[in-house]
Design a protein around this nucleic acid. Sequence first.
DNA 1: GTTGAAAAGAGCATACA
DNA 2: TGTATGCTCTTTTCAAC
Lengths: 162, 162
Amino acid sequence: MVLDKLDNVDKGILYLLQQNARDNTTAGIAEKVGVSSSTVGNRIQKLEENGVITGYHPTVNYEKAGLDHHLLAIGTVPYGRRGTLGKQILAVSGVVSIRELLTNKQNVAIELVGYSRKYIESALDELKELGVTIERIEMMKRERTQPFDDLGKEYTTEGDTG
Amino acid sequence: MVLDKLDNVDKGILYLLQQNARDNTTAGIAEKVGVSSSTVGNRIQKLEENGVITGYHPTVNYEKAGLDHHLLAIGTVPYGRRGTLGKQILAVSGVVSIRELLTNKQNVAIELVGYSRKYIESALDELKELGVTIERIEMMKRERTQPFDDLGKEYTTEGDTG
DNA sequence: GTTGAAAAGAGCATACA
DNA sequence: TGTATGCTCTTTTCAAC
């Protein structure tokens, strides 16, 4: 499924879901994109089936949850092994995300979260054992995420997206 | 609110929500953490009020949504301006996330998404105008996100988290 | 702070245009 | 394919513990 098959209704729904996937009800979305609530439900289901929406997750403030250690490990993974290693890296306790880049060096950015320095160190040890060469470790100050804002805002009646 | 105030029930709820924030109902969570569904509802509300949970977002597969251009701009922002610039950077069309690091150089990683190369270029121009020095631009191969898996799994009866 | 039940609201499936 | 209605399930609220 590519964008050609995403019409204005899909785009509007995606935009609003990205604003708030929990408080934006199907009825509320329906009103803003100009269709019925059951159509919104059908569309969302299709977006999920087609892999456009792959999941719904809460954004957790790790500091407020008591996880004081939050850092980014920038490293290198051998070219051929990146696909396989991704899952293994995610399986390491404390790893919350990986970004894979199309470069030969420094091609992975691994976000780590933990209760203590010891916790982080054991995660780094595990990563090394998997074959990840850690090149830099930086403390993360903050991470901000936002929906792609040009997806379908124009197809909605922006009002109270919550 | 810090972790000291997060008890096992909170941790279990957070764990399950991170697995699937949509299909895990309060009743289902209640069963797995061993409390009533209304308690789960109350706890979730408090986690939101206290800023532990800051939002719920769908994970969107940008490629499947027709947004073929997905890259990471690594750059530098003057030390004193990072706090202010964050919001402005997020306001640039195409920017979906920023990671701020505690370094002097290359202290921001800006994730960009767009329909076309032109689209991306205009976003980069905007970033430069804001005062961001772009040092490297890398194509993103993939991004994988996962909940912090050591938050409260032990306090749940892992069964059908969906 | 937790529970259980009742009420309000949301989502889903069926039927129809 | 999109829309409307009725049914079921979820969430929220409130009294009681």
